[in-house]
């Protein structure tokens, strides 16, 4: 290799950098929505609708960039400097962690209606077509020979909801108490052969690898999987009761103020509460909070996390921190 080609190489690298920088500079107003895994399709749809609405209303063009990943990982990225104008995560606990670092004003959850959760969801079962193991309710999951797929509660927000839903079910059974609930969840996790790190990973394991009889999943994920992968292969089973999952949204105050995007960011989140926003949420199998918006989702009894667990901070500490109940029961399960 001659020196000339070295120089050419460096020159082209510099040029490429320059072009890239130029490309960034000419961009119009952008918002970055940092979200969790299962909302990709919802926000792709919603962003388009909002951009149209915003242009009509103000004449301004807005582009919304999306970033998806595990809820906790995403919150951490925001804490470490990912410049999100808004976050739409799986649980309030993760947004609390961002607020703790001073990026969001305290009391963020009261800024928007309904605990800042414009839509809710719950945990249901996805089973193979024809439901060969006859899985109807939570009680069926702990039967011997039933293989249950769920992601790891320590790395996945969705998995925490799965775990808490099972716990809440056992807790609210006749004669249920904390130790019964623990017993139930322990035997449930004995039936779990794989713990993927994220919700999508679990769905892939269940669908693509053919592992397990039942997948514990977000309701919207379960329906999406059926839509994407064929209704001839899977069906959704809605248990008699489950947990009320409230995935909250909020503006990252510090970023929005710095970037001067507060107004559009707030409007963006408020648009989730309009009829249009609620319809899009319903279309993607989230449960709209506006009861007037029709939904095809089955009715079931839902427990809230505040009722059954005394809020996220407490639930996280008791169940999912190092040495917490989840560690204890999986440690015990592994030794068997």
């Amino acid at each position: 290799m001659k020196s000339a080609s070295f120089r050419k190489l460096t020159a082209s690298a510099v040029l490429a950098l320059g072009l890239f920088a130029a490309g960034l500079a000419s961009a119009e107003t952008t918002l970055l929505n940092v979200s969790y895994d299962p909302t990709r399709e919802l926000y792709t749809d919603f962003n388009g609708a909002f951009a149209k609405y915003w242009q009509k209303k103000t004449g301004e063009k807005v582009t919304i960039k999306q970033s998806h990943g595990g809820s906790g990982k995403q919150a951490r990225a925001v804490i470490d400097g990912l410049e999100a104008d808004v976050v739409t995560l799986a649980l309030a606990y993760d947004i609390d962690a961002i607020a703790e670092k001073g990026l969001i004003k305290p009391g963020w959850q009261k800024e928007l209606p309904h605990n800042s959760s414009p839509y809710t969801s719950t945990i249901v079962f996805l089973v193979r077509k024809g439901n060969p193991k006859k899985i109807k309710d939570w009680g069926d999951l702990v039967k011997p020979g039933v293989s249950v797929i769920t992601p790891n509660p320590k790395t996945s927000g969705g998995a925490r909801w799965n775990y808490l839903a099972a716990w809440a079910y056992a807790l609210h059974q006749k004669g249920g108490n904390e130790s019964k609930a623990r017993e139930f969840v322990t035997s449930l996790f004995k039936n779990v052969p794989v713990l993927d790190s994220g919700a999508r990973g679990s769905t892939n394991t269940f669908v693509q690898r053919g592992l397990g009889d039942v997948l514990l999943a977000w309701e919207n994920e379960a329906f999406l999987a059926i839509n994407e992968l064929g209704p001839d292969k899977f069906e959704v089973v809605t248990p008699s009761e489950s947990i009320l999952a409230e995935p909250p949204v909020t503006v990252i105050d510090k970023v929005a103020d710095k970037r001067g995007t507060r107004k559009v960011a707030e409007e963006y989140l408020k648009y989730l509460y309009t009829d249009e926003g609620q319809k899009i949420a319903a279309k993607h199998y989230y449960r709209p909070i506006n009861k007037k918006i029709p939904t095809k989702l089955a009715k079931l009894k839902l427990y809230t996390i505040d009722q059954s667990f005394g809020g996220w901070q407490k639930a996280q500490k008791t169940h999912f921190s190092d040495g917490g109940i989840f560690d204890q029961i999986t440690g015990a399960a592994a030794k068997k």
Binding site: G70, G72, K73, R76, N152, T155, L195, S197, D322, A334
Partner: peptide
């Protein structure tokens, strides 16, 4: 990725970060 059975150390690091 089962704890105690098939969980590797780099995953533990990720879990702690989480």
């Amino acid at each position: 990725n089962m704890p105690m059975v098939s969980e590797i150390t780099p995953l533990i690091i990720i879990t702690k970060l989480e």
